[in-house]
Every structure is written in C-alpha cells, then in structure tokens.
Design a protein around this nucleic acid. Structure first.
Lengths: 116, 116
DNA sequence: TTGGATATATCCATCTTGGATAAGAGGAGG
DNA sequence: CCTCCTCTTATCCAAGATGGATATATCCAA
C-alpha cells in the first residue's frame, strides 16, 4: 500500500505512527525525527535509515506531512524539515485513540494498574 | 526471530501482543482468539489464519502460552485452547506499558484529550 | 446423509523493516 | 587551505511479518 491516495486507514504502519507523533509538537528534520522517536519510546523503537526516509517520502505523497523551510537559527542546508498536515494530525489522533482503547482493555483486565 | 528461546524483548510483534491480550482474562481456542482481538480493537485488527496459527505455534515454542484442556462444557474436540504462561503475562505487561507511555505522550501533546 | 459452518494448518505472494552502502556537505584542527 | 570525521539524505537488498488462498477434517442441522 502507501504512496496511493488519501489512505488514512487505521491501523497505521508503526513507523508512520511514530513519525507522526514525533512531529506533533514541532517540526523536525529526518534524523531529528529518529531521535525524537527514540526518546518518546524510551529507546524501544529505533528507525533505520531505510524505514525513515522511505516513510517520509510516502507520507509526503500521501499528504500526511509536508516539507517546510528550516526554523530560524538552523543554518544547515542539508536538513529537510517536515510538518504535520491537517490530514496527518487526524490520522495521528485516530491511531492514538486505537492505542488508548487497547490500554483501557489492559487496565480493565489488571494487566496494567488503573490510571493515576 | 521467534521460535528461539526466551525472547521476551519489547517491542513485541503486533500479532503476538494482541493474542496475549486476548488471553489475558480467560482461555480461548484459535478462532476464539481472533474474535476476541477483533472485539478488543473495535474491528481494527483482524488476524488472518496464517498469522494466527503461525503465531500460536511460535508463542508456544517461546513459552509465552501453553495448550490446555478444553473448559468444562466445551465438547468440540477440534478446538485447541491456550493459556498465558507467567512469562507470557510478563511480556504482555511490558508491551502494554510501552503502549501506555505512547498514549501519555499523545495526551501531553494534546493529540488526545487528558485522561478522564 | 448431505451441505454448510467451524476449526486447524500450511503455503506463497506481498508488505514492511533494518542494515549496508553511497555520496556529498559541514565543521574542527593543523 | 587541506584533511579528517561527523552529519545528513538517499537507495538497495536481504530478512522479517502478515494476509489470503487453499487443504483437510469434523461438527451440526436439516
């Protein structure tokens, strides 16, 4: 799939979901996204270069993210910065809701303790 | 990976995680697990027979689940019932915690509303 | 006893990922 | 001004994971 049209169907590919989440509060460039993903997941998820750049290309084609100019203060012209589109944020919210539902099930079954 | 030894590393394969969650409160047989997964995820995740039976075989080899006798009242001898092992429950808890962390990040960034 | 639903199981094509590799620009130090 | 090392994007290929078709057999209802 991917690289087709507006394919905002849940479930998202794990890599796509984590990239969207990494971009949810500010723009990042490729490797910056990979670092952010690693932080967000406490090191559990690490995107290889293949997955990273392939995903970014497909996500751009699918309209989930778009390339933007570098933020003020960043001088390195090699970096390509990305930002969520409205569609990308919607897809992120949908997938995050799916995760939320799963966590709720886990709590109801005492796999996890109840929410704080 | 898989079918090796005690390979309880996070992240789990999505299929393995959902099967563990489906078995977290009672024993189920193969197709019963698939139905339970579909319920738990509001229809978002549907395991094909290939993924289902391959996963169950590997998970048994890895010691995450074990086959148990049918519950009282179930007469169909074709069904093979499975139950979480201690190791399987630990793996489930670890992976569920990873999901929980991701949901927390999504909430902090207003992708999802705060917990009720 | 006949037919459709249920159940386990395997095989193969496709999808997805990770790692090796490449190529070029940036930056520090001599 | 060079040289070396890092950072960055990018592609390719092998390995990993999934889904669906297919096979085989049993259960159950008509």
């Amino acid at each position: 799939m991917s690289s087709k049209n507006i394919d905002t169907a849940v479930p998202l590919k794990p890599a796509v979901f984590h990239i969207l989440l990494a971009l949810s509060d500010e723009d990042h460039h490729g490797l910056g996204i990979a670092d952010e993903v690693e932080e967000n997941t406490a090191g559990a998820i690490r995107l290889g270069p293949g997955t990273l750049y392939r995903s970014l290309k497909e996500m751009t084609q699918d309209g989930l993210v778009r390339e933007v100019s570098a933020p003020a203060g960043d001088e390195d012209p090699r970096r390509k910065f990305y930002r969520l589109t409205r569609s990308g944020r919607a897809a992120l919210r949908a997938e995050a809701s799916r995760y939320e539902r799963i966590v709720d099930v886990a709590r109801k079954r005492a796999v996890l303790r109840e929410a704080r």
